[in-house]
Amino acid sequence: MQLDDLRAQFLVDIEITNKSGEYDALYLKYLSKTHGLITEHIKALPRLKPEEKKAQGPKLNELKKFIETAILKARLAHTKAQIEDTGIDLTALRQAENVGYLHPTTQVIREMNAFFRYYGFSVGEGPEIETADFNFRKLNLPEGHPATDLQDTLFIREPDILLRTHTSSVEARLLSSLKPPIRIVVPGKCYRNETANPSNSPFLHQYQGFVVDRGVTLQNLKWVFDRFLRYLYADDTIEIRFRYKYYPEVSPGMGVDIKCRFCGGKGCAVCKQRGWLEVLGSGMIHYNTLKMCGINPDDYTGFAFGMGLDRLVMAKFGIPDIRRLYGGLTYI
């Protein structure tokens, strides 16, 4: 069949198909890779003389494209007409079926894990029921150290068995069991002897991280946060401030702030008029901590960081009260 006849036949066929709606059959009749009418012409091309091939080739190609486009357009028009004909109201939305979802804190933990795992960190875990040794002593917090005031402890058996007050206890455990190089993050629950209110809860979530290797410095720690905070807040223009801050388990310590995202640094109720929001505590792992965990602090250095997760989750999801977050009063 000549190409002109083929085109004429297709125009008849598509008229018929517009009534039946069987566009798949029409497509196969002309374009099936095994027996389509156009395909057969294409298969015949190599057998033609060079000049015929030169004339026939582009025409065949044009006809193929024409048929493809015509079927696609006709199919869309048909679907639209069908909706109009039957009077289906697609805008009458019903209540969504009950769908599953992950807790906001899990979502944020996953987001953070994804960042750190990209940079070669593993996720670490440790017990919530902890000994004073791992929770305090190995982190350079001897008995009676004033910094234990920062962490009102819930004791199971005072003074040696307690609920971990921070995820740093996992750092002490893993530093004692792993060999450098080490890159670990630890998302987890910890506990404080506090009364619940909108912003504090006796149980809280922290996100801890630590790196130990040869030649690790404060400059690398700054680099990690520079990357991480831009990722976390999905904002490349975020302003980050690094300042000295004391934490007993590190020396030198470092506080990390971001310019207040609510007032742009002018000072508001959210940032307590400071213009900056404190987001992380960090520093170089204390000489004594490395030593107590069996790592030679003259050979290896390391950094550690920790942040509260709950306020971050609350800010991200617009949850005003921590008791809603963990009391079954959130639904996304």
């Binding site: 593993s122 996720v123 290797d213 700054k222 690094f242």
Partner: peptide, 22 residues
């Protein structure tokens, strides 16, 4: 601290330690 430069953390990533249960 503001005067301390920022330098990329280098070195081969350590072996995977994430517990299977996690």
């Amino acid at each position: 601290y503001a005067k301390i430069p920022i330098t990329q953390l280098l070195g081969a990533p350590p072996k995977e330690e994430t517990p299977a249960i996690y």
